[in-house]
Design a binder for these strands. Structure first.
Lengths: 177, 177
DNA sequence: GGGTGTTTGATATGGTGGATAACAATTATC
DNA sequence: GATAATTGTTATCCACCATATCAAACACCC
């Protein structure tokens, strides 16, 4: 597994963000002479399972949405641009927890792919109003469908009710912890 | 909050791993003229909440265990060394999802702090048997208590039953997704 | 209206984690 | 005993995160 697109990116595109391959490394299967290690209190550490689960989910996300070459972060930006027209970089970045300096290169990538554009605001000529292009909207629409299949797999794994409860708990932690 | 230990690390210690500060950036409070942005389908994206929750939990972990200067990854290594004596670097690293090359510097850090040691195996003189030192065991014991308080806060937030269910779902995702 | 301070996008830079290739020493295999 | 595989290691690259700083534009305020 792990879908290593090893022989992909050929030319090292000048400025576009390459959406990283994923990890390899054979998931060691405990043989007879070397049984599985004891995780100890790690199995009860919420942060540990959280991280592990997050990595798996992101990995599957990348795999599902690979045809569109979108990372989770890029996808989240497109969603926000679609739902919040007229906002500037600071607003979009900060709601996603992205620092403004780091958001610049990210936008460069999306803009160079023709998915969105920066327009100088007429009210405040410092800020850029971010707008999805038609292509951006089209890509987002296709991405949503691929992501839906990704989420469906999760639904299938843990069940719809559990998924809703899980989502709510995670949101609570993210909000109030 | 966010416990930025800005003025801490004074001398840029030669080789020791500095356990990173944490993010700053004021959690923008929606003022009157700029209401909160719409997250749209992001609120239903499991990966999004997963990532957000994971960051919060790790942040709190770092804060709680700050007196011992242990990162989640380092803590997990200490736990594994304690529970699995006689194992080598490859085994410890791979069960934690750490690539062997990256595990070298990590072990260097722990060893330079006197928390563990590498011993050449007599059976296989290529491999290093990893052992916790007494100091390592002591630090681990103290760390466990600090981590317990960290986990207790989570318990308090979402409730013991929910926490158990959450843990199980995350483990399922990490295992079978 | 002009100085002072702030905000916005941007650049430069450093740190940290993750991933691959390659290597010497050692061991396994045949 | 030659060949292949494994172990720890180094070097290197890329992605992500964080800080300081800057010019342009704006806000304020006397």
């Amino acid at each position: 597994m792990t879908v290593s697109k090893t022989a992909a990116a050929p030319a090292k595109a000048s400025r576009t963000r390459t959406p990283r391959p994923a990890r390899k490394q054979p998931p060691i299967q405990p043989t007879a002479e070397s049984p599985a290690l004891q995780l100890g209190e790690l199995s009860d550490l919420l942060g540990y399972s959280l991280k592990r689960a997050q990595l798996k989910v992101f990995e599957d996300f990348l795999h599902c949405v690979a045809p569109l070459q979108l990372t989770p972060a890029q996808f989240s930006v497109l969603i926000l641009l679609d739902r919040n027209p007229g906002r500037n970089q600071t607003e979009i970045a900060s709601t996603l927890g992205i620092l403004r300096p780091n958001f610049v290169a990210m936008l460069d990538g999306l803009e160079s792919r023709g998915l969105c554009t920066r327009m100088r605001s007429s009210n405040d000529r410092r800020s850029h109003v971010l707008v999805l292009t038609d292509k951006g909207r089209a890509v987002l629409a296709r991405a949503k469908k691929l992501v839906a299949r990704h989420e469906a797999r999760l639904n299938e794994l843990i069940g719809p009710d559990n998924r809703a409860a899980l989502l709510q708990m995670l949101a609570t932690i993210a909000r109030e912890f």
